[in-house]
């Protein structure tokens, strides 16, 4: 069993009227099966309303299954005795950094989590320093969070999660409110955590460019995983992605259009370097 495993996971949002009678049922997760290998960087794509955020909240036991089972680090989330253990193993980062930062000084904010867990204070300071260092924010430790840029705030939020030493981090559209360099900063920081500390990452996003270096991509639609594979495999299926209201990175799209116009640069091209090299090769072998 991997670090996060779902078996026929179902979630229903049930709306009730004042008397408690069921008004409507909306199935947000519809029998999900997946198994995330520890240490993987998983990217989750899907249109608004496809079930991504519902899934994220399950991994943190903020929501509990209406049917099926979800295990985090081998623990069944629906067992109420496991909730705090699950939350410690799977940290969560949300879209808006301003809603997640509570401390008036960066290091205080980062120390809040371990303090809550009852960790001794010498140990907390070690963790705070370590966490801020690994997201490149150590020199801001005594700053006020509200003077930081969006990308920096989001990295502080990630450090706050890291200080609880989770095995897995779920990030729900962490870059939606950031400018291009903020997006790049956060993505690079999380990739580094994944590589250096072996922390499993579930990265939910609407930006196709952010998915290029993931190990595995899940595409969700109507509460199910409808496509799954390496970025190259997923992004070579341009038309299918569009049916799920998604897209491909700009470079992949250009390569796709060039292919269709008869320039054989290869489908599923992910990076600028690849496309450039393919074009240089073709140009050299031109008759």
């Amino acid at each position: 069993m991997g670090i996060v495993k779902a078996s026929r996971l179902v979630h229903e949002y049930i709306r009730r009227d004042e008397e408690g009678n069921v008004e409507s049922i909306q199935t947000a997760l519809d029998g999900l099966d997946f198994d995330v290998k520890a240490g993987d960087f998983i990217a989750v794509l899907g249109h608004n309303g496809s079930g991504k955020s519902t899934l994220a909240k399950h991994i943190n036991a903020l929501l509990l299954p209406s049917g099926g089972t979800l295990w985090v680090d081998g623990k069944d989330t629906s067992d109420s005795g496991n909730v705090s253990a699950v939350r410690r193993q799977a940290g969560m980062v949300f879209q808006n950094p301003d809603n997640q930062i509570i401390g008036s000084v960066v290091e205080e904010d980062v120390g809040f989590g371990p303090e809550n867990l009852g960790i001794p204070s010498e140990e907390i300071w070690i963790r705070v320093e370590e966490s801020l260092k690994s997201v490149g924010m150590l020199r801001y430790r005594s700053h006020s969070p509200n003077r930081l840029s969006g990308g920096q705030k989001q990295r502080v939020a990630i450090a706050g999660i890291l200080s609880m030493e989770p095995k897995c981090i779920v990030l729900d559209e962490p870059t939606a409110m950031l400018d291009p360099s903020g997006r790049q900063e956060v993505l690079e920081a999380v990739h580094a955590l994944n590589r250096q500390k072996g922390i499993t990452v579930l990265w939910i996003t609407h930006y196709m460019e952010e998915v290029v270096h993931a190990d595995v991509v899940y595409v969700m639609d109507q509460g199910r995983i409808v496509m799954q594979g390496k970025p190259r495999e997923i992004f070579s299926r341009v038309e299918e992605l569009r049916e799920h209201r998604l897209d491909v990175p700009q470079i992949t799209l250009l390569a796709h259009e060039l292919n269709q116009a008869g320039l054989a640069v290869g489908e599923g091209t992910l990076t600028r370097e690849e496309l450039k090299d393919a074009l240089v090769r073709l140009y050299g072998s031109r008759a």
């Binding site: 249109h47 608004n48 939606a176 409110m177 609407h206 209201r245």
Partner: peptide, 9 residues
């Protein structure tokens, strides 16, 4: 901000 690619377009 926050919309899926199709919604964006």
């Amino acid at each position: 901000a926050g919309l899926d690619p199709k919604g964006r377009d």
